[in-house]
Amino acid sequence: MPDHASAWDLILSGDAALFAIVRLSLAVSLSAVALAALIGMPLGALLALTRFPGRPILVVLLNAAMGLPPVVVGLAVYLLLSRSGPLGAMGLLFTPSAMVIAQTILIAPILAALTRQTVEDLWIEYRDELGAMNVGPFSRVTTLLWDARFSLLTALLAGFGRAAAEVGAVMIVGGNIDGFTRTMTTAIALETSKGNLPLAMGLGLILVVIVIAINAAVWGTRLWSERHVG
């Protein structure tokens, strides 16, 4: 990426480095959302449907974990993955995989906490009907997740927004290596500190436009399927 070009020039000229950064940002954040959904949503639904001593404390901790500071998560993952850390032998530090791991840890609590609330509300409505159909515990979880799917899309968007916007975690565990682990947010931070404000601003605008486009696509899908499927 040439130092003195504006973001606009880079888009118009189809700058390969710029598109690699956009691609990596999306790949990391979307992978993290997918992994966090696989982990967080079933756990959130399970927490919604079970009662045990200490549950209120767990709910409060989970809700609090939505506010985990990205740099703290980044630091924790850094310590886990660094050469001398417990998982150091896997050689993941400063790779896109490390960034996916950190962002997954960051947003899994968001998805779990929002799923817990959504499923718990739906369960109040469905409890008698599912009881009358003799629905077992496992089917309850899958039924409620499926029937809450439109509300859960919003949770997914919240998770994606958090992942796409954060810079602290990916900076620490990814290292902002040019052409390898540089994302939109770390590039913006770098260009800003270099004083290249027009380029930083342009990259910021591209990021915002991408986030809006993804939200619009998801919302359109939701409206369409609500009309046709229920």
Binding site: Y126, D128, E129, M133, N134, S139, T143, D147, V229, G230
Partner: peptide
């Protein structure tokens, strides 16, 4: 409940098509 069924005064429709609602009951 094995061989009994109930219809509530305000039945809750699953967020699916009419036929999928019946399919769900059959599966269960």
């Amino acid at each position: 409940p094995t061989r009994r069924a109930i219809v509530f005064q305000r039945p809750v429709m699953l967020r699916r098509s009419a036929s999928a609602n019946v399919a769900y009951a059959l599966a269960q």
